[in-house]
Nucleic acid binder design. Structure first.
Lengths: 149, 149
DNA sequence: AAAAATATGTCAATAGTGCTGACATAATTT
DNA sequence: AAATTATGTCAGCACTATTGACATATTTTT
């Protein structure tokens, strides 16, 4: 792998932190790569992973809520959600109050897969945090949350 | 006395830090969204952004080096690189030592675009870092770099 | 009760970005 | 001279995203 330099760029007078931008890119690239290998054996992609993750995390959430979280369109979601339902990883339950809603729940199978996908990612994060320094977890958490919105 | 821990906030008994996994997802989603709006006005996508970014950061890098950095195939790169060359954002120069090589350089136009794309991302990062706490920059940097590989 | 709005589902068409495999050319190394 | 390397290109395919249109059932508003 070609090392990423810490050198100032030609346009270093811009005050732009190109290094952190790059570090973020590389970190996310490898973070997602962890789960990709597992997903491949199921014929799933990253979209499936994200859907399963959030249904697992927030059981009973509606389709509309899921669309809002993922910021994708209904049509983009439809395919992967259908596959996850057909494969028995996610169940739909008609909303008890509003019968138009379809509340989404992970099955046992779905929870197991979500867990297996999260494990290598969690391991990578923990290993990285151990190399980060005192208070790393809370600082990294604060940073990532502040990046949103 | 209550120990000061740096333990992950767990929402279940799996020992997996789902919260940080999610935070990383949301952070990257919004991080990339910054540039997407600009890219759209050029008819470019994220792939163009990444290519332009690394050519700008490492002027004179070869096609092979770029493929290694991006971890994509030659064919995936070919399309976007051709468009960036045709649009006058990147130039190719035959390698002075090895004439098989095509060394890639950003043009003035390319440097300007790379800068405009980096600005909102850098602003988001800086704003987030300010909310992170003392030593945030070095800790976040250490974490992101430790996530790679 | 009728009309409007909402939640979801589905169809058709398209775009961006990744992949594999095959093959070609020019230049360098063995 | 032969093998290897760096790059380019072609054909085809997969996944994930998009927009727009339309359908159904249900809830809310008028």
């Amino acid at each position: 792998m070609i090392p990423v330099t810490d050198e100032p760029t030609l346009s270093d007078d811009t005050g732009i932190d190109f290094m952190l931008i790059e570090a973020f890119f590389f970190a996310y690239r490898d973070f997602t790569a962890d789960a990709d290998a597992i997903l491949e054996t199921y014929g799933f992609g990253r979209a499936h992973h994200r859907v399963l993750h959030f249904v697992n995390r927030r059981p009973g959430l509606t389709v509309a809520e899921l669309l809002e979280i993922l910021r994708i369109t209904k049509q983009s979601l439809a395919r992967v959600l259908k596959q996850l339902i057909d494969s028995g990883h996610i169940e739909q339950v008609t909303g008890p109050k509003d019968k138009r809603q379809r509340k989404l729940y992970p099955t046992e199978k779905g929870r197991n897969l979500a867990l297996n996908l999260a494990m290598p990612q969690s391991r990578r994060i923990n290993t990285a945090l151990q190399q980060t320094g005192v208070g790393g977890h809370s600082q990294v958490e604060a940073f990532l949350k502040a990046m949103v919105g």
